[in-house]
């Protein structure tokens, strides 16, 4: 019999409570009763399930590793010294249990009177793993134990988290899709490559049905890389935004300006088109783009090279061929020393 004996604060008769290990086990399925030599005298049913009945009578240290113990003794009560302890299972070191160990006076049992220890243990945060590993059920926990609530919560939380992660994934996919389908360049607000390709296809279709000639211009900023490298990306971005503004200012409503790469722009010019007009337009653009741009007290200087193709009124133009022609003209301008325009006819 385990014997709990305390003096009442009121100074009345000492109240004694005698509990059998069976009753104790119903309250505390993970209790452990050790004699003064540290041998297991009795334990709760759930602990028995884990250690096996053969553990009775064996030394506590054959089953547990004490990791920590912190004592606090109630004042004037030398016996009821309680310690908070943390232990590992020797055979399953992954499971940390924690609990309270308290010294008690026992009335016999094997003829040995003395100070025994009563320990009540609990699975900490590893509860789910322990339940799975040892095959525990509802009845292995005291009704007052919050273990089931803990298991419920961790499972409910996992379900909610899963649902949220799935939602985040779907939103991310939708965001990417929207970005892919977008027709404008986020930095400059100009049309992007996708919008430009569509516009060029449309222009060629209109031309094929008897539409007017148009000019295709490929513009590449000169010295942009130097600005980016020496003054930083923010300065580079400022240059791109300013360049976009210049191109928008100089073109007319029916024209199209697109940013198709880092510092590359494409334009479709409509209206009365001939080589001189295009050249004049290009020179005006280049001189405006050569105006220094002030960014955070630094002056950024760039120029531009342009390759232009005048797409005449004849059948059989294809977008790939025209783009290659514009690219070749641009290359010629770069090769000739930058800040120039080359015009070809197709």
């Amino acid at each position: 019999m385990t014997h709990l004996d305390r003096d009442l604060p009121g100074g009345g008769a000492p109240a004694a409570l005698t509990l059998s290990p069976d009753i104790l086990g119903q309250f505390m399925p993970l209790f452990l009763w050790l004699d003064k030599r540290g041998r297991i005298r009795a334990m709760g049913p759930t602990l028995t399930k884990i250690l096996g009945t053969e553990a009775i009578g064996t030394a506590y240290a054959r089953h547990f590793v004490l990791r920590r113990a912190r004592g606090h003794a109630p004042e004037g009560d030398p016996i009821g010294k309680a310690r908070r302890i943390a232990v590992n299972l020797l055979r399953h070191p992954g499971f940390n249990l924690r609990g309270t160990a308290i010294e008690i006076v026992t009335g016999g049992g094997g003829g040995e009177d003395g100070t025994d220890t009563l320990v009540n243990l609990s699975f900490g945060i590893h509860l789910s793993e322990a339940v799975r590993f040892f095959g525990l059920t509802e009845t292995d926990f005291a009704a007052s134990d919050l273990a089931i609530e803990f298991l419920f919560m961790s499972e409910a939380k996992a379900a909610v988290l899963n649902e949220l992660q799935a939602l985040t994934r779907r939103l991310e996919d939708a965001r990417r899709a929207a970005q892919n389908e977008a027709l404008s360049d986020a930095l400059t607000g100009l049309a992007n490559r996708r919008a430009f390709d569509a516009a060029l296809d449309r222009a060629l279709k209109v031309l094929g049905r008897g539409g007017r000639r148009f000019a295709l211009l490929h513009l590449d900023l000169d010295f942009f890389k130097q600005v980016n490298d020496t003054l930083g990306h923010a300065a580079g971005d400022a240059v791109l935004v300013q360049a976009a503004k210049v191109l928008s200012d100089e073109t007319r409503r029916g024209d199209l300006v697109a940013r198709v790469g880092g510092d590359e722009f494409m334009m479709i010019l409509r209206g009365p088109i001939n080589a001189e007009r295009v050249e004049g337009f290009a020179k005006r653009l280049i001189s405006r783009l050569e105006e220094p741009i002030l960014h955070e007290s630094e002056l950024c200087r760039v120029s531009a090279s342009i390759g232009a193709v005048i797409v005449g009124e004849k059948a059989g133009h294809d977008a790939v061929g025209l783009l290659a022609a514009a690219d070749a003209a641009l290359y010629a301008s770069k090769h000739a020393g930058r800040g120039r325009c080359t015009v070809s006819e197709a």
Partner: peptide, 15 residues
């Protein structure tokens, strides 16, 4: 079983 399989399915399994 009190503890579900380690990779417990969620509402998402009924996608």
């Amino acid at each position: 079983d009190l503890a579900g399989p380690a990779h417990e399915g969620s509402l998402s399994t009924e996608r």
